[in-house]
């Protein structure tokens, strides 16, 4: 439970950064922090108290294994997160070339 609360706090840190920061790179970092809090939550979904790594060898019949499926999901989600972060960074650097700044207050061509 404690870890769940910590993970929620990490999410709030990311959300705070996303809302208050005005720098493109910091926005990207805040999004990554939010994503990682979600990965920790997903990991906790599969966790069982006292569980061991799910490598089933058949030696110990009473062993309790943690759920391996969320771990596989997190690995996939991390790869996707890497792709989105790389894409965001590439666009941010391109924007920097056009405007010579990372400040979103000066990057306002479109009305939304």
């Amino acid at each position: 439970m404690t870890v769940n609360i910590l993970c929620f706090i990490l999410f709030l840190v990311g959300l705070y950064g996303l809302i208050t920061r005005r720098n493109l790179v910091k926005i990207v970092i805040s999004l990554s922090i939010m994503e990682f809090s979600l990965f920790i939550f997903l990991e906790l979904v599969g966790y069982i108290d006292g569980g061991i790594a799910p490598i089933i060898t058949g030696q110990d019949a009473n062993a309790v294994y943690v759920d391996p499926l969320p771990q596989a999901m997190i690995l996939t989600a991390i790869v996707i997160g890497l792709a989105t972060t790389a894409m965001l960074m590439a666009i941010a650097i391109r924007l920097y070339r056009k405007y010579k700044t990372f400040d979103i207050r000066e990057i306002k061509n479109l009305k939304g």
Partner: peptide, 13 residues
């Protein structure tokens, strides 16, 4: 490729 793409734009700047 990602790393080189980012670093090449930095070079161009």
């Amino acid at each position: 490729t990602i790393f080189l793409a980012l670093i090449i734009y930095k070079e161009e700047i």
